[in-house]
Computed example of a mutant assay.
Amino acid sequence: MLNKIATATIVTIGVLASDVAWSGTRSDSEFLQQGTIGNTRHNLTQRQTAGGGPTGTQMDAVRNNYEQVCVYCHTPHGANQNIKAPLWNRTVRTTTYTLYSQLSLSQDATQPGPSSLTCLSCHDGQTAVDSIINMPGSGKYNAALALNPDAATTKTLLDAWSTTDDAFDHYALKDNNTECLSCHSPSGQGGAQDFSAYALGTDLRNDHPVGVKLPTGAEWNVPSGTYQNIRFFDTDGDNRPDKNELRFYDSGQGFEVECASCHDPHGVPGATAKFLPTFLRVTVDASQICLTCHVK
């Protein structure tokens, strides 16, 4: 079982790797976007104490506070075996995505692979953001949350296996101004920041294509590095895919673009030590991220 001592050790290791430490308390870090994942929006323990967004009183009703940063996605024990993702702790829903349909390439896009499904497990709006299968504390593992429970079943299971910070509802990042977006919408109810751009839904036709193979030809740059199932642009020549290097993943159908090709969910520091916006691996300044792959 996942215990708080083991998890605290994992979180501490992540914090020590940075200059700015997350306090671990329930007060908000103001989303500094600096130094550690604890200071980004992917730290789902954050509840702002006053002003600038939903307070603890508002958030505790709709999202369990597990008081650990990593546990919303990862667990050292009892990981979900239904997806090839590192020690994955989240519910996996069987979902068919509507794919990008304006390809001029000689191949069709395939359904997203694990390096996209991990992101979409929140961003497609089908699953509560606090839906994990191995909650902190003894006796909090629930295999029934591992694969494809519907939304109502998920909420029932989460309530039954709740922590001391009980949510009586469990919100997902919907794309139609419900659940999370009932506050995190363009109107900014309660001072909440607008997250509507991050609610992708299951229709991916208006997003950069995923599940498309590494192209060839004069219009594309060629990645110089290969590591296991990754082809990557080895910009520093160290023969390893670093956080700030774009990459393609082979999930069994050849090297393809996935969400994690361009985004690192843990954040990539920029020149000022702050994380690049929207967890991008390469800055958008002067279209550098586009020109990594595209020759224009």
Rank of each mutant, 00 (worst) to 15 (best):
P215D: 09
A143K: 14
H77S: 10
Y198G: 01
Q107D: 07
S185D: 01
Q58A: 11
P241C: 11
P209W: 04
T94D: 01
N43W: 09
L16K: 15
S27Y: 12
G211E: 00
L147S: 06
D175K: 09
I37T: 13
D242V: 10
H294K: 04
S182N: 09
T178F: 07
F255I: 13
T278Q: 01
L120Y: 08
T95G: 02
P149H: 14
M59N: 04
D250Y: 05
G35I: 07
Q46H: 04
L145P: 03
T278R: 07
E258S: 09
D19F: 13
F279T: 06
S116K: 12
A79Q: 11
P112H: 04
C259I: 15
S138T: 15
V295G: 08
I5E: 01
H170F: 13
A8V: 12
L246N: 02
K274P: 08
A128Y: 00
D203E: 12
D165R: 15
Q68T: 15
Q189W: 02
Q107K: 12
F248H: 05
P265H: 04
D19L: 05
T9P: 00
A192M: 00
L147M: 03
Y100N: 05
L181P: 12
D194L: 07
H170M: 13
S131Q: 02
N82W: 10
I132C: 06
A85F: 12
F233I: 11
Q288S: 09
G139D: 00
G188D: 00
G24Y: 10
T154S: 10
P112Y: 08
S106Q: 11
Q189H: 00
V282M: 01
T94F: 02
F232A: 07
G211D: 07
S115I: 03
R231T: 01
P186K: 04
S115N: 10
A273N: 14
Y249R: 01
F233W: 10
L44K: 02
T98F: 06
A50F: 14
L157N: 07
R63P: 03
V62P: 02
W220E: 09
R231D: 12
S261C: 05
I10L: 09
V210D: 04
D242N: 08
F195K: 02
T156H: 04
Y227F: 14
D60N: 15
I13K: 00
A271D: 11
Q33D: 10
G125T: 09
I132M: 02
A273K: 13
T9C: 11
A17W: 15
F279I: 09
S187Y: 04
S162H: 14
A109L: 01
G190S: 11
F248D: 06
I289Q: 09
F279Q: 03
G190L: 14
A144G: 11
M135L: 10
T96Y: 03
N82C: 06
E245C: 14
R26C: 11
P265E: 01
A160L: 01
T95S: 00
Q68K: 10
Q34K: 15
V69I: 13
I13T: 12
S196D: 09
C293E: 01
N3K: 11
T94Q: 05
T95D: 03
N206T: 15
D165L: 12
H74Q: 14
